[in-house]
């Protein structure tokens, strides 16, 4: 079971990349009493029946474990949302990609903590491969709003497989949380 919102987001982004996405957008917003988040990708996408199966914990399409019959990414998220009184929408089509949008009530007792958002965005950028990742946070109440692109970070610090580069990218992402 995941602990924080950031765990669900990283999980969804990993799904997107495993589905061959070249562009993934991950966003979090805290406004109007809702903790809202979305992961939008242009990966292989799913048809209606596949979406239904993806939300079934006893099913996986992943090629990582042939012969196994569990896939807990989306089911974990749905379980947490049902428990906390949130809502979600999964919109997907073969060849177009998958959009997962959801929100938790901000004041819900069962709403998970946001978690370490800059650290999560960094992890989302640290997977192998040539892909664009746009990470956005919009929290007007905190006075915090920003959007960061993986391509800009790679351009500034080089590949994120290098400990020093990762440390610099981490410092950069953390500084974005600062209130103007």
């Amino acid at each position: 079971m995941h602990y924080a919102l950031t765990d669900y987001l990283l999980d969804l982004v990993q799904n997107s990349l495993e589905a061959g996405a070249s562009v993934v957008r991950v966003s979090v917003s805290e406004a109007d009493g809702r903790l809202e988040a979305a992961v939008l990708d242009n990966g292989s996408g799913m048809d209606g029946a596949e979406v239904a199966r993806a939300t079934d914990p006893f099913h996986t399409d992943g090629n990582k474990h042939p012969g196994r019959k569990v896939g807990l990414g989306l089911p974990f998220l749905i379980q947490a949302l049902e428990q906390a009184g949130g809502r979600w929408d999964i919109s997907s089509a073969r060849g177009r990609g998958t959009d997962v949008r959801f929100w938790f009530p901000l004041d819900g007792v069962d709403t998970p903590p946001v978690g370490d958002l800059p650290g999560c965005f960094l992890s989302c950028m640290c997977f192998d491969g040539d892909y664009e990742l746009v990470a956005a946070r919009h929290s007007p109440d905190r006075g915090s709003s920003y959007e960061v692109r993986r391509s800009d970070i790679l351009d500034a610090v080089g590949p994120l497989s290098d400990a020093a580069s990762i440390a610099l990218a981490d410092a950069f992402l953390r500084s974005q949380e600062e209130v103007e």
Binding site: Y146, D152, I153, D155, A156, V157, G158, A164, S165, L168, A169, A171, F172, S175, Q176, E178, E180
Partner: peptide, 16 residues
């Protein structure tokens, strides 16, 4: 610490 800009990030990387 204020928000770091991409230019500042680039500069930090140059220093390192």
């Amino acid at each position: 610490m204020a928000k770091m800009t991409l230019d500042q990030l680039r500069k930090l990387r140059e220093e390192k």
